[in-house]
Design a protein around this nucleic acid. Structure first.
Length: 597
RNA sequence: CGGGGCGUAGCGCAGUCUGGUAGCGCACCUGGUUCGGGACCAGGGGGUCGGAGGUUCGAAUCCUCUCGCCCCGACCA
């Protein structure tokens, strides 16, 4: 049992001005953390208690499927050379030299170390599968640490690696992690979604990110009630059908549109809807040096033209995936070169499209939403003129047809047809099928049934420990902000530093003090993690402090004690009830049990 | 790395433009009153004004350099 009067809980009335996001301010104010440098934090007792609880849950679930290691954070250059990541990681890796001048790094992840153990020790398919995990501090020299514990240079990560004899084995290991992660995040009280992520270079490989919606997040995701979830860079949607315009002739027809350039202006002038228009966007792609093939074929830079429905937005990431390089908008001169017309009057007709993405010429991409549409309004590539009756396929042929638009909130997901929710999110976990990359480059093999050397196939699985805490605070703070316009939060009991706080409203009244101490002992004996606020402070101060540290339940010992009553404040549901002294422990036990079911 | 902002007491800030040797609120210490929503009165302690150099009789204030932190972007798990 812990008494506040003896603990180090340095709460602040005001947040340091450096803090921007809610969780950062609250973690500082509540005395969970203190900053030592950019992206470097000390975890104070309260923060440490909470993180320990998260780690305990992670460990419990991971022990169901794997075995725990603890690996060195300090790694010699050699292992990272072998995997090719000594250079591959670039400036993101912290590097140092020892007294002899040997080069070392602070590990960002542990594929190399794990694979080197596997290489040295695993001999036979009979030893597979293996799932090895650890909970360790990782170091990343982030270009821009920010948002308190959300993006830091030193953080605790649970990382796991699986070794299997074949793809079917990897599937099984991957699925075990998927299940374990869902259990872990649920037990931590998080409302999360699993997002299909980029499948990477290896064909058929799979990857999933576990995300929590929060405004403080850095990723944009879309999800729906049917279980569909995707990064905005990947997300697609089912569109409601739209009526095409009636043709005024069988061929495109010039319309004089003096001074009308934007979708809205042209739409208003021609009395049509934005979705009747074809929008033209012009970019230049700069191919990276590494894409030698592309450079050879089409040169270092290339014109890229995208056609979208008038009311849709381009997703540059999707387009850049097709264009194979970084995009930048065309300059007016480049536009003139390509279209022989000024911006505002660009269109598809008369534009010479490359016959194939890998062939020279202008890369013309038609958004899939325009496939099958007819009689669109488009720029005429002639100043002050647009065209009507433009029909893709008949009047012009793009290089490729592909999904290159951003989806919008409320559109229907492609699998279940449920409305999509769009928002910022923070990644708390990531599982993916690595394939042979590390085992192969580092020369790990085992003998298969036929006595033949075989490269094991690997998976890699991470969880950001601090991000679980941060995401929980952000979620709760957002809820409080919406409901009461206040900056506060309450943590799920499973990961709160204490499950309940017993607040003695006035320790100078002996009856209150004794009743509080007795109750706290009783709760403690019942296995509840209790904090007794026995400080000689005014009640208001103690109430505020109890809220600041995010403890989900508070028992007020005060005036009503004379009638044998106590108050139980449920901060998760924002309710207060009076309960008889002798029933409070059982009541709380059932509340806690319900919260952890 | 590009753009912007900020470094003055533990925290939040004023003072900088127009140089004259540092102030307010909270927190902290002592005494008293108060005691269910961040009390009140009285007294008190605490600051290399981020650092270095320069200008000046005199620099928190002006000039040069430098370090750090935050935000937007780029980048990145």
């Amino acid at each position: 049992m812990h008494c506040w009067s003896k603990l180090f809980i340095p709460t602040l009335r005001e947040a340091p001005s450096d803090a921007e996001v809610a969780s950062h301010k609250l973690l500082l104010r509540a005395g969970y953390i203190r900053q030592l440098g950019a992206g470097i934090y000390s975890y104070l007792p309260l923060g440490q208690r909470s993180l320990n609880k998260i780690i305990a849950i992670v460990r419990e679930e991971m022990d169901q499927i794997g075995q725990e290691f603890l690996l060195p954070a300090l790694n010699p250059r050699e292992v990272w050379e072998e995997s090719g990541r000594w250079t591959g990681m670039g400036d993101n890796m912290f590097r140092l030299k020892d007294r002899k001048g040997a080069e070392l790094c602070l590990a960002m992840t542990h594929e190399e170390v794990m694979t080197s153990i596997a290489r040295n020790e695993l001999r036979s398919y009979k030893q597979l599968p293996q799932i090895w995990y650890q909970i360790q501090t990782k170091f990343r020299d982030e270009p821009r640490p920010k948002s308190g514990l959300l993006r830091v240079r030193q953080f605790i990560m649970k990382d796991a690696y699986s070794f299997d004899i074949d793809a079917a084995g990897l599937d099984a290991s991957y699925n075990k992690h998927d299940t374990a992660y869902r259990t872990i995040f649920t037990r931590c009280g998080l409302d999360f979604v699993a997002v299909e992520a980029d499948s990477g270079a290896m064909g058929g490989s799979q990857s999933q990110e576990f995300m929590v919606y929060t405004e403080a997040g850095e990723d944009l995701i879309a999800s729906s009630a049917s279980g569909y979830a995707a990064n905005l860079e990947k997300a697609t949607s089912k569109l409601a059908p739209v009526e095409d315009l009636a043709p005024t002739s069988d061929t495109p027809e010039l319309v004089h549109t003096p001074g009308f350039r934007t979708i809205d202006e042209v739409g208003a002038f021609l009395q049509t809807k934005p979705h009747h228009q074809l929008k033209t966007m012009a970019y230049i792609v700069e191919h990276p040096e590494s894409d030698a093939k592309q450079l050879k074929v089409v040169g270092k830079t290339r014109a890229v033209v995208a056609f979208l429905r008038g009311d849709h937005q381009l997703n540059e990431t999707k387009l850049s995936a097709i264009a194979l390089g970084q995009l930048r908008p065309m300059t007016p001169e480049e536009i003139a070169d390509t279209f022989h017309a000024p911006a505002g009057y660009l269109g598809p007709i008369g534009l010479e499209a490359a016959p194939h993405p890998r062939k020279p010429g202008v890369l013309v991409v038609l958004d899939a939403a325009l496939e099958g549409r007819t009689n669109l309004i488009a720029g005429a590539n002639k100043e002050e003129y647009h065209l009507r009756n433009v029909t893709p396929g008949r009047d012009f042929k793009p290089t490729v047809i592909a999904d290159i638009r951003n989806i919008n909130e409320g559109e229907l997901d492609p699998i279940g047809g449920e409305p999509l929710r769009l928002g910022k999110a923070v990644e708390i976990g990531h599982i993916f099928k690595l394939g042979y990359k590390y085992a192969e480059s580092m020369g790990a093999t085992v003998l298969d049934k036929d006595g033949k050397a075989t490269t094991p196939i690997m998976g890699s699985y991470g969880i950001g420990i601090e991000r679980i805490l941060t995401a929980a605070i952000e979620s709760s703070a957002a809820k409080f902000a919406a409901e009461s316009a206040t900056e506060q939060y309450a943590l799920p009991p499973a990961i709160a530093p204490f499950e309940v706080i017993v607040t003695i409203t006035n320790v100078r009244e002996t009856e209150l003090l004794e009743a509080g101490e007795k109750l706290a002992k009783e709760l403690d004996a019942a296995g509840i993690d209790v904090l007794l606020d026995d400080r000689d402070e005014r009640a208001g101060v103690k109430f505020k402090d109890s809220e600041l540290i995010g403890v989900p339940y508070r028992i007020n010992i005060g005036k009503k004690l004379a009638q044998g009553q106590l108050e139980l404040v449920d901060r998760l549901n924002q309710t207060t009830v009076d309960l008889p002294l002798d029933s409070i422990t059982t009541h709380l036990i059932s509340l806690l049990a319900a919260s952890k079911q």
